[in-house]
Structure formats: C-alpha cells, structure tokens
Design a protein around this nucleic acid. Structure first.
Lengths: 252, 252
DNA sequence: CGAAGCATTGACCCTATTCAATTTTGGTGG
DNA sequence: CCACCAAAATTGAATAGGGTCAATGCTTCG
C-alpha cells in the first residue's frame, strides 16, 4: 500500500522507482503514535527531527500572551514537518495532534541521501516546500481580504483538494476533524459566528459537515463562493497548469 | 561598504571571510534598476532567477479576481527573492517595487556554489528561509487575532527591527515608504481606518509617521501594544536567544 | 448516569467599513 | 516662483459584519 506522501509528491514530480521504494520503507519505520490534542512541539522548544505524518491530522498554531490562538495551517496524512527544522534552533510556533496521529521520524541524513541518490524525490520535496509556503500565503490572503463566509468556503476547498491529492477523499466526502472552536481559531473568527456561517452554507445546499466528515455537494459553486483559485496547490513543474485537466470524475 | 544582506545574515550565522567577499561581489554585479510601482514578477508568470534586493523596498502581494489585494510581506534592502524559485514553475503571487529599487540578479548556480564552497553562507541562507516563513506565520497571526491597532503596531515593530538587523535604522527612525492605502492592504483594513488608527498611535506619543519616515518614541510600549514577541525574527542558531542581549543603545 | 465539552440560539453591542466630501501634499510645467 | 493637477490624507456620519455574553440543548465517554 503506497503511503499518502507518495501520492502527493507524485503530483509534483514523477518519482523514480528506487525513490518510491525508499520512501515507502521510511514511511513504515520509526513510527510513533500520539493521542489527540497533545502538543508535538511547542513554541520556544528546540526543533526536532523531520517527520512524515502517516495518519491523523495535526495543526500548526501560535498563541499570543493573552491566550488568543491562531491556527496557522493544517497537517494531513502525507505532510512533512519540519523540513530542515534542525537549521533553526527554536520553534516560533507549536504543532499539536488534532486527532490521534501516527508519525514516522526521519533521520537527519534524509535530505542528504535524497539529494545524492534520489534527485526526483529531492525535486518533489522542494516543490512541497513551495506549496506549503503558498498555502500559508493563501491563508494570509484569506484572513486579510476574504469575508467570514468566503474564508470558510476557501478552507473547505483547500482541505478537500489537498486530501484528494493524497487520495484521501471518497467521492464528494472527506475527513474534516475540526471542532467549531478549532475552525474559529483557524479562520480568525468566533465559534458563534462559525456556527452561523456553517449553517448558511449548509442551508444553501453547498456542503454538509457531520460526524467530522465534510461533504461538498457543489464544488464549483463552493469555489466561486470562496474565490478559490487552485493554482497555488500545484505551482510546481507538473505541466505548468495550462494543459487540459481531465483529472477524475468529481471535477477539480 | 558591506551590503545590507551581509549584516542581516551575520545575525544568523557567523560568515567566513571568503563567503563575505563573494557575497559582496555578487551584490555589486548584474545590477538592475526598476522604478516605483512596477511589477517585478506577476502572479502566473514563470518564476525567474534569484535576486538580492540591494536598495529600495518591494512587496509580495496577491489579488483576488474581484480586485481585492493583500500585501503578503515587505521586502527591504538585503532581502532575497526568490530562493529556489526555479523549482516552481509559476508564481502564486506577485512582486512589485514599492519605491524605486536596485536588484542584483544571482546566477542559477548560486546555491550550489554556496553549498560546496561557503557552508557558513549556506547555513545563513537556510536561516533566512526559516525566518521568512516565520514572518509569514506572524502575519497570519496578526490578521487572524490582532485588532487593527495591534496589527499596525506589530507591523511597525517588525519593520523597524528588520531594518535594524540590516543596519538601516538611524536611532529611533527608519524608512517606512508605504502610503496609507498600501498599509491598509498589508493590514487587511480600510485606508480610512488606517488613518484613524495611525492618529491614535500618534496622539498617544508612541510613533510618528511623516515624509515616509517612521519614528518610534517608545519601542517597549509599542511592543506591548502589539503583543510583539521578537523571537520569530531570530529563531536561528545565533545563540538560542536566552543570552543577555546588549545589542545597542536603543533597547531591542 | 453524570459531567464536560461542543453546538446552537437570541439579544445586544462594537469594531471596522462604506460613502462622500474636503484638505493637504507632492510633482510638473510654464 | 506660482499655478495646476493627481494622488494621498483627513474628516464626518451612517451602517454592517462579526463579536460578546449568556443561556440552553446535545453528545460523548468514562
């Protein structure tokens, strides 16, 4: 069974067979389980080794002195953290398990070996770094310019599409294990207003959010509501983006 | 005259003499001037080569289809862009000159040479990448959690301190070449409210903003207003941050 | 079965937006 | 040096998007 990270990286760059095997092996070694809501790494801590998130969701977040908390990004199965974290000495933010998670720890020579022996993988990793940065920029754009409703729709699009890339969706459904409080912290709004906004989207027949599962009934319309431009999730050499995108059944 | 990038990178990692000479030489070659308000690189463009911003300010920004614009970060003299941009194929955002700027273009083998021959420089560049990402996260935090007043104070602290690291401040003054409209686009608020917020900070004797120059009368207090935690601007191996910071006269 | 956490609702309020007008500034040419 | 223009800054008044507070209902899980 190919791990989710492989599916994701393939979307950036075709991987050579040896690279895929090596990656699959690494994704099954040095595993560790962490229960939900536990910090993996805390603001101010020394940075740890690199990890692949194998299963479950995590978040990056930052807290202000007075307790306000901003969730900075979502980590889903197949995501890497923290690439080259050992270069920095201390964390400027925290990482926490949102659900129970399984992590694979990577050795410090991971990047060196990738560079020397698996150039296709190294390139894919660089693309991943770029996309991660692009996602962060898109969040800034959302928080600065989009309305509450647009932000919420945008986050749903992002998480659906990212899970799709990692082959984690089932038709129009995908996991969405955020409480409304966490959703509020991610979107820079209050839980009360998250609730109301969610109801609006539900009432309009765009989405449904139940039992930690998101169902998107009308993705094209949801994208329109969100002013969603999917370019940022695949800015890498894939094929430039102008080619016809036949992808799969459920239109991207 | 040592270029600003050298001052900045020294703050991350002690540079070897040959590295400094090489860098100084690069900062004086392949120069190009671009007038104010011209795009250097546009959303959707193919990515270009790496550059050092030698003189003047630039911005990264992103526009939504309906014209709303979010400024994502400020580029000041000594900043690099776009590191390893050639790995991505298309830009998810734009870069524009805010003032007239001078750029130094770097050859594509810049990073390779740095890696092979100037390991201290390579490490410093990695730190720079990390700090850049940390700044972006701090902007997300600001936009999501801080009030208008706090955001404004925070941006002023950030830009003052970053300029200080690049030896671009003069006492309590530094450049601040943003119109109120641009400030609004950076802070996710309207120009009208920027004006009012600015007047509040001025009235309280915290800052003054005139002739594109920012004067900070009470940095410690401004930091308190902003809930500013300077850790994120120097998360690299400097010395961890717990050592006594005697720095200079105007308390950091 | 109780308790804690989460979701939902209503009423009120405030921060920040919108719209529109006026003043100031800075740059240009005569 | 002044006149002129466009862009930027400033002001006021009305308004709306989203926050706050507080109560209630619903889950989940030990």
């Amino acid at each position: 069974m190919t791990p989710h990270i492989t599916h994701k990286l393939r979307g950036f760059e075709e991987l050579q067979d040896p690279a895929e095997h090596w990656l699959a092996e690494l994704a099954g070694r040095n595993l560790r389980e962490v229960p939900a809501r536990v910090d993996l790494l805390r603001q101010g801590d020394c940075t740890g080794p690199m990890h692949i998130l194998i299963q479950g969701w995590a978040i990056r977040y930052k807290t202000l002195e007075d307790g306000r908390r901003q969730i900075l990004s979502m980590l889903i199965p197949g995501d890497l953290f923290d690439i080259n974290g050992f270069m920095a000495s201390s964390m400027d933010h925290s990482i926490a398990a949102l659900t129970g998670v399984t992590l694979a720890r990577l050795d410090n020579d991971f990047l060196d070996i990738a560079r020397r022996e698996h150039s296709s993988l190294e390139k894919a990793l660089w693309c991943d770094i770029h996309v991660t940065a692009a996602i962060q920029r898109e969040w800034s754009t959302s928080l600065g310019q989009r309305t509450a409703r647009e932000r919420m729709a945008h986050l749903m699009c992002e998480l659906y599409l990212r899970q799709h890339q990692a082959k984690l969706t089932q038709g129009r459904c995908c996991a969405f294990p955020l409480t409304q409080i966490e959703l509020a912290e991610a979107l820079g709004m209050t839980p009360v207003y998250v609730n109301r906004t969610l109801q609006d989207l539900r009432r309009e027949g765009l989405v449904q959010l139940e039992h930690r599962t998101l169902t998107i009934f009308d993705l094209p319309q949801l994208k329109r509501v969100a002013l969603f431009d999917s370019g940022y999730l695949k800015i890498c050499d894939d094929d430039g983006g102008s080619a016809p995108e036949k992808e799969n059944d459920y239109a991207l």
